[in-house]
Structures are given as structure tokens and as C-alpha cells.
Amino acid sequence: MNLAVIQYNAGNIRSVLFALDRLGVKADLTGDPDRIRRADKVIFPGVGEANTTMRFLREKGLDEVIRSLRQPVLGICLGMQLLCDHSEENDTECLGIIPQHVRLFRPQSGEKVPHMGWNTLELSPDSWLGSDLQDQFVYFVHSYYVEPGPYTAASTHYVQPFSSVVRKDNFYATQFHPEKSGKVGEAILRTFLDI
């Protein structure tokens, strides 16, 4: 399998490559549109700020590339948020693949922001994750969230329920970091690789 990991100005892409390595998968870390288009599967990782990242993707023409992909794509963290229509983080227009808004956590009872640490998954019916992961813990670090909606494959509760996993057509995404979520995270990456 030819797996591309999209390289852009994001932090800690290295962890994703290490996690894939542990699963025995050699990935192609690349920002080259042709290599991304030709891959069997694509991972769109991300740690960073929405506006700067979208500007970078547009400058490189990667926004169009990502929208045009028909093979399975996995967005991670900021990668998931950027698949949506719009983010409140510096009022950013995103890729518009998943028709949802990304909002800032506004705690009502003293919860900390960012939402940082291990929290549980509540699976939606027929989730692409399979049924074994109900109530399993995964590792989150984020201040913005995707509202629950028709594309939610799992939700998590922090301040209010939000989408921790989504899927629309060939676009899959997780708000948490599967590459940092121990065995549960490895199982999720494996599920995506086996699609």
C-alpha cells in the first residue's frame, strides 16, 4: 500500500510516522500534489493554528488537492477541523468537505481549556471504528471542537458533547491523537489502514 502523509507547516508530524512505523507501515511524508493524489491512502495530520495553516495550504495548492481526493483520507486533530466549513479560530474559512462548524470551548463550570488528556469515546451506530471501542480512552489536546452532526462517528463529552470522530464519504477524521493513544490509538490507525 502506498500511504502519503501530507507534509505542511504543522508540529509533531514525526509522531504519526513513528506510530505507522510501529504498525509496520512505511509512509511517504510529502507535500507534493502528484504524490498525494497517487497514494492509495492519505493521512492529513495536524497540530497548529487554523488560519496560518489554511493560508499555507492555499499557497501550495494543497487545499484543492485535498478536496479532490477520492481515496480514504484520515484527518487528525487540526486536520479534522480543517476538513470542516469554518473555524472560530481566527475566523478561518476551512476546506468545506464536512459541512460543520468548529467552535471554541466556552466552559460554564470552570473546565480547563485546552481539553487536554484522556477522555472516552461514545460510538455512533454503525461507526467505522467498529464496536469494540465504546468507552475506550484516547488522548486529546485541543481548544476548538467540531459540533455533533450527521457525520459524527463517535462523540466525547467535555463542556458539552462534541464530535471526536467523523466520517463523510472517503474522509475519516479524529479530533484526538491516535498516534499518542496507546493500544486503542493503534487499533484505530489499523482500522483506517485496513479500509
Partner: peptide, 30 residues
């Protein structure tokens, strides 16, 4: 550590420059 462990980790101790930190980020520190 990053190559072998699948949980988050922090590295500290005498870090004082952007250069120190950039090297750690690229090495895979969370």
C-alpha cells in the same frame, strides 16, 4: 522515546533557547 512509546511525553531540564526546542520537536517530543 517517540519511536518506541505510544503515549505523550514531556522533556525538560535546562531548556533555554528556541534552537533547543526545535530540535526536540523535530525529534518527536510532544
Amino acid at each position: 522515546i517517540a519511536a518506541n512509546l505510544s503515549i505523550p511525553f514531556t522533556i525538560g531540564g535546562g531548556i533555554s533557547s528556541l534552537g533547543d526546542v526545535e530540535a526536540l520537536l523535530h525529534a518527536g517530543a510532544d
